[in-house]
Every structure is written in C-alpha cells, then in structure tokens.
Computed example of a mutant assay.
Amino acid sequence: MPNKKHVVEEEDDDEQWNHKSLDVLNMKKNLFINICQSLSIILMLIIIIIIPISQVFVGWHYSDACPINQSIPYYLIVAGIVGLLLIILIFVCQLMIRTFSRKMFDNVIDRANSNRTTTLVGCGVCSIMCINLSLFIFLLGWSIAGWVWVLGVWNKVQYYHANNNDYCHPIVYKYTFSLLLLTISFQIILFCFVCRKTCVRIMTLRKKETITTDES
C-alpha cells in the first residue's frame, strides 16, 4: 500500500497546481478585460474628439456659404471649440484623479502632510469640474440657440442657387441639423439612464428601510 504521507503530498501538489492554473486563467481574463476596456475607451475618445474637430472644420471652411443665416456656421465653430475644450478638461481631470490617487501617500512627506496633498488635488479637481459644468451649461444653451437658427429657416432654405439670400450649403445645414438631432437624442438617453439609476437607488433604500423596520 502506498504511504499515506506520500498520497497527502501528491494531493497538496495537485491542489497547488490547480490554484496556480486558476490564477493564470484569472490573470489572462483580467488582462483581456483591461485591454478591451482600454480599446473601447480609446475608440470612444477618438469618436468624441472627431465630432468637435469636424464642427470647427465645417464651420470655418463654409463660414460664408450660408447667407440665409450666418449664425449657423458660427454655431459650429463655437460649439466645436467649446466641446473640444470640455473633452480636454475632462481627460485632465480623470488623469489627475487616477495619478494622484495612487501617488498621494507614496512618500514620507505626503504621509506626514496628507491634508496638504489631499486639499491641493481636491481643489484642482473641483475647479476643473466647475469649469466643465459651466461649459456643459453653455453648450446646452448654445444647442438651443442652434435649434432656433436651424429650424427658423427650415421652410426657406435652398441648396442650389448660391447667389440667393435663401441659400445655405447642404453640408453646413444638414450636418448642423444632424448633429443637433444626435445631441438631443444623447441627452434624452442620458436623462433616462440617470432617472433609471436614481429610481433603482430609491427602491433599494426603501427596501433597506423596510427590512430594518421589520427587524426592529
């Protein structure tokens, strides 16, 4: 008969090998998930950056090609510049949060003066978030103005006779209209998403309160 000690050692070795295999599989899975998330973020960032850059390009290139309402190409230019600035500030804010949250307590100085570092980073992030909120509110109001300018000439605009006062280049007008439609659709989806999250949280809190009341 085999030695019991030898059998136990073999079982321990098998268990350790299984744990190592699971660890390797988990590492590969986490690596794959991180790569997919990074690629998704990069792709979304590229798409988001392309929109304001295209706004500035179209508005600048066709700034004199919409005599029916010269405000339409200028709307594109301003919206593109402010949108690009908003994206840059959001990226800087996220970078600050990720960087300083890891390095905040890395050295002895920061550990001894944790309040100084926390206050400095917090003030910087808070300032950028306030600027972002202001820019977002401005873009919201600017979008309303864009809707007024675009829909105000809906029944009058024509795309064939460039010398007439009711002319607007089709790229300028149709691109602006499509972009405004996309913006309001995104805002509606975001509003519904926030409402859903809020309702779920409220229901969860009510359930917790009910359970606490029943237990007491």
Score class of each variant (00 low, 15 high):
L182K: 01
F186A: 15
T183D: 13
F193D: 13
T176Q: 05
Y173L: 10
T176E: 04
F191S: 11
R201K: 14
C168S: 13
L181K: 04
V200I: 14
F186T: 10
C168F: 05
K197F: 02
C192R: 06
H169L: 05
V200G: 00
Y173N: 08
L181S: 15
C199S: 15
L180V: 05
P170Y: 10
C199T: 11
Y173A: 10
C195S: 09
L182T: 06
T183I: 10
C192P: 00
I188P: 01
T198R: 03
L190I: 00
I184P: 03
V172A: 03
I188R: 06
K174E: 07
L190M: 10
H169A: 05
L179P: 01
V200L: 14
V200A: 14
K174T: 04
L180P: 05
I188N: 06
F193R: 11
L182W: 06
Q187R: 13
C195T: 05
Q187S: 14
R201F: 05
T176S: 15
C199Y: 12
R201I: 07
I184Y: 14
V194Y: 06
I202M: 06
V194R: 10
S178W: 04
I189C: 08
L180W: 02
C195A: 13
I171S: 08
M203E: 15
I202Q: 07
L190G: 11
F191W: 11
C168Y: 05
M203R: 15
F191Q: 07
S178P: 00
R201T: 08
S178E: 07
T183W: 12
M203Q: 15
V194C: 03
I184G: 01
L182H: 00
H169S: 03
T198H: 02
L179D: 09
I184M: 11
L190Y: 11
P170A: 09
S185K: 01
